[in-house]
Computed example of a mutant assay.
Amino acid sequence: MIDTTRLPALALISVLLSTPVLAQSVNLYTTREPGLLNPVLEAFTKDTGVKVNAVFLKDGLQERIKAEGANSPADVMLVVDVGEINAAVDAGITQPIKSAIVDKVVPTQLRGADDNWVTLTKRARIVVVSKERVSQDAITYEDLADPKWKGKFCIRAGQHPYNNAFFAAYLARNGAEKTESYLKALKANTARKPGGGDRDVARDILSGQCDIALINTYYIGLMSVAKNEQKGWYDAIKPLKTTFAGGGTHVNVSAAAIAKNAPNKDNAVKLVEYMLSEKAQALYADGNFEFPVNQDVKDSAAVKLLGAVTPDTTPLGDVAKNRKAAADLVDKVGFDN
């Protein structure tokens, strides 16, 4: 695998364009941290003989591929947010993934329109509470608006992508009027100004500043194995079974798409299919306490720690389409003020 993380842009393109377009290579552009991907990519090469040329791009992945045009060496894109992967589709830089394995493994609501992208792993956004001060074990997202939580609710900024996706899902399910009312109720219940990170809400539960909060599940996993003060934050919280009323749990995803001008399309499909295999799902999901999309993987680290989640049936493509409107509502109610 080429280490491209420190190459300047022109040199990077030169390296990839000079890489022979062989049947036994595939070029991956990703915003995912290399340390999380490398075990899976190395296993793929070992098992298939296909070399992966991986390019890590913290920002500007779509812009890079568009600038490279028809000669782009990109075969596969892998990103960590439904809005980002949907934006790649809207930018016209993807193509449908035709695969019986994808059809079998990935539920329809966890794929893009016309199968232009597919989910690889899921992270759920759930409610955590104080172990000492809250006794219930389950909750709906709608219950967070209950006035009984006034002055007890903590959340990071409403415009953060994690919350933007959650509010967009709420909007897709309930419409603008109900979502605006919901945001006002959540704001009224906050114990402090929305902000900080997901792990900070666990810290604030420990300190007694709040009793209840929203958090992404993989942060719970990371805190559970921390060797510093964060282990104490984890010990202070209790994850609740969290769903929409009459629905499932809100999830965001890491997702893959095949580039429109992929020079190694067959190997691109092969890589995506491999990442959906039980072996790869265990390696990939456990690296960051995410939930496998392959339901045959029963004992992932996230499931062992938190139990299985049933994703809400709202198509993630609909969630992505509502993100701008959700952001506008957050601003309208002054959620982050």
Rank of each mutant, 00 (worst) to 15 (best):
G195M: 12
F44V: 13
P292K: 06
S18F: 04
A172E: 02
D296V: 05
D286W: 07
F335H: 02
V303D: 02
P73D: 07
R192S: 15
A145S: 15
Q281S: 14
H250Y: 05
E278T: 15
F335Y: 12
I101A: 08
A236E: 05
Q159G: 06
G248L: 08
L276I: 08
G49L: 13
E180G: 03
T48E: 10
G246H: 07
A255E: 01
S25C: 11
L144R: 07
G69C: 10
G208A: 09
L186Y: 00
A100N: 12
Y284A: 02
D75G: 09
A302V: 13
D318G: 00
V15Q: 14
T217C: 07
V309D: 04
A157Y: 01
A268T: 07
D312E: 11
A11F: 12
K241E: 10
A191P: 01
P107S: 14
K332W: 03
A43F: 00
D90S: 13
D318C: 00
Y162R: 06
N252Q: 13
L305C: 11
T314C: 02
S72N: 04
W149P: 02
K98I: 12
A188H: 03
P73C: 13
G317W: 02
F291N: 00
T121W: 03
T45M: 09
Q295H: 08
T243K: 11
I101Q: 11
V55H: 04
N337K: 13
L144V: 07
D3K: 08
D204Y: 14
D235P: 11
G232A: 10
R123W: 04
K241Y: 02
I97V: 14
A213D: 06
